[in-house]
């Protein structure tokens, strides 16, 4: 049995390479789409929280509550209304990113040193200019950290979207489980783990480049305080 069904059969991988590549592409697409949509929605929510400070706790609690809905339940709840579609996959996936992204945006803006914003106001920058020219650029590193968490988490959850017929590599995994044929399972699982780690590493590199201004000079820290 194990001869016929090893963990990985290379001849199968070669034969099915187009399916596998298509699965990777679909996985990446779904991940990116989720994060982009998530960032857009989070941006709107963050803007609302900024404009109406009283809404902030509500937005925080709501996004946190969304995050605690078990993924299986979330996908399952949507199937009767939206079917086995990409929409069914996207709604929970986007919802899960919100808590991280909204907080990343707001925390990023919050950690801008008060003196910097105060100076920006005092020398005559308009509120919009202050937000777009000063606070937002300074929030970018924190927002990118949030994107990193959201992206990596999403890669894993996309795998699970296979239960509603979506989710690229997850479908290979489920296919392998259903047929008890290990090659698609192994390849799907390994590639999704690899994808998560690669994207994580890519973000690490991005984070290093994103803030050329935060030069690491211990001596200057005291002066800047």
């Amino acid at each position: 049995m194990s001869e016929r069904n090893p963990l990985l059969r290379w001849d199968y991988v070669v034969a099915q390479r187009h399916t596998i590549i298509a699965a990777v592409i679909e996985h990446v697409q779904l991940t990116l789409l989720t994060v982009v949509l998530g960032l857009a929605v989070a941006g709107v929510l963050a803007a609302v929280a900024l404009r109406w400070g009283r809404a902030r706790p509500t937005i925080g609690a709501a996004t946190a509550a969304l995050y605690t809905i078990p993924s299986v339940a979330f996908f399952g709840l949507l199937v009767p209304s939206t079917g086995l579609t990409r929409t069914t996959a996207l709604i929970p996936l986007v919802a899960y990113t919100l808590v991280v992204l909204v907080n990343a945006i707001l925390d990023g803006l919050d950690q801008v040193p008060p003196a910097v914003d105060e100076a920006a106001e005092a020398i005559g920058l308009s509120p919009l200019r202050r937000l777009l020219g000063v606070r937002l650029p300074l929030a970018v590193p924190v927002i990118v950290s949030g994107l990193r968490v959201a992206t990596v988490t999403t890669v894993g959850l996309v795998t699970l979207a296979a239960i509603v017929g979506q989710g690229g590599l997850g479908r290979l995994i489920l296919d392998g489980l259903r047929r008890a044929f290990w090659t698609p399972l192994t390849i799907g699982a390994l590639l999704s783990i690899l994808l998560a780690l690669v994207l994580d590493a890519a973000f690490v590199l991005l984070e290093r480049r994103i803030a050329p201004w935060s030069v690491r000079r211990p001596a200057s820290r005291a002066g800047a305080a």
């Binding site: 907080n103 590193p141 924190v142 950290s145 211990p218």
Partner: peptide, 24 residues
């Protein structure tokens, strides 16, 4: 961890720094 504290955010630990309250 003063030496590490001045690492670029996320050099190793970026994903863990959703907020960053450093800089007294």
């Amino acid at each position: 961890t003063a030496p590490h504290a001045s690492e670029p955010p996320g050099a190793l630990t970026g994903a863990m720094t959703l907020t960053d309250d450093e800089r007294d």
